[in-house]
Nucleic acid binder design. Structure first.
Length: 281
DNA sequence: AGCCAGGGAGTCG
DNA sequence: CGACTCCATGGC
């Protein structure tokens, strides 16, 4: 049996006909990707890779020795098994959502590692994206595992659990340092069960996440969406006070709950690119 | 220099 | 509950 061409040089090729990498990786849902030439370089968990798109395929060049299940890992990360075409069809029947998905049709909601997502969005509170990225890089460089290619993976809870907030001074993350440590301790103590948070009713998952210091309604919603794969997550409470008020004066329509995650990200993407006032998605 | 950042905790009424 | 303040840091 011939070796598939896709595996000849370690490059993973995945079919991804409607994936817009730029919209997906630079829209504010993740913080460790940088555009480099024809693609993007990034680290997820303890895997570094260069990714690019061509001819409806997603090419993944691991910068570190591929581990077991490397292809499956990235397929899951990019959420390639979800039928976004169907989601867009459903969104097309709502006037606002239709415009939202027309703005960034190739965007996908990444399925990011839970603890990494929790920490990232704790750090995002009252912060700006360039600085969030810097803090996360320093967090990884200081306490994450060294990867074969010189980059650093994201630290596991156990790598942080014994630290004091003074130890986090090099991160320069301000008052968020103690929040980070609380998250690590709660994880290490087994008080946040990823499996359970993925399966339990949304209100219960929200409440559980918000028991972590530094996790309020907004951060919880982001963690639910990007870190727990719960597409129905939508920070109505927070966004109603901001941009979403003009899009959904009566609240987010319940019948589009399965599309809420994409709608959220697209709207945020739009607001970020077009300013906060004026215009519609 | 000054405003703001993908908020949240603590306090007070 | 709701409103209000403070938070640590740095990007722009």
């Amino acid at each position: 049996m011939p070796i598939p061409a896709a595996q000849l040089d370690g490059t993973i090729v995945l079919k991804a006909p409607d994936l817009d990498l730029r919209a997906t990786l630079l829209c504010g849902q993740c913080f460790r990707w940088e555009e480099q030439g024809t693609g993007f370089f990034g680290v997820v968990s303890d895997r570094a890779a260069f990714v690019s798109c061509r001819d409806g395929n997603l090419f993944i060049d691991p910068a570190t020795p591929p581990k077991e299940g490397e292809a499956a890992f990235w397929r899951d990360y990019f959420d390639l098994d979800r039928d976004y075409e169907a989601l867009r069809r459903q969104m097309a029947s709502h006037p606002v959502l239709q415009q939202a998905c027309a703005f960034a049709p190739g965007i996908r909601i990444l399925r990011q590692p839970f603890f990494e997502t929790l920490c990232s969005f704790i750090l995002s509170a009252n912060n700006n994206i360039p600085r969030i990225k810097g803090i996360i890089e320093r967090l990884c460089a200081c306490f994450g595992p060294a990867l074969e290619d010189g980059h650093f993976g994201f630290p596991a809870p156990n790598a942080l659990v014994a630290l004091e907030k003074e130890d986090l001074a090099p991160l320069r993350c301000g008052y968020r340092a103690s929040y980070l440590l609380d998250a690590a301790r709660r994880m290490a103590a087994g008080e946040l069960d990823e499996k359970e948070l993925k399966a339990c009713p949304m209100p219960e998952a929200r409440a559980a996440l918000q028991t972590v210091l530094g996790v309020g309604p907004k951060v919880a919603e982001c963690v639910l969406l990007y870190g727990l794969g719960r597409m129905e997550a939508f920070p109505v409470d927070v966004w109603m006070r901001r941009a979403l008020l003009e899009y959904f004066p009566q609240g987010f329509p319940e019948e589009y709950r399965s599309c809420a995650g994409i709608a959220q990200q697209v709207l945020f993407h739009w607001v970020r690119q077009n300013g906060k006032s004026g215009g519609k998605a």
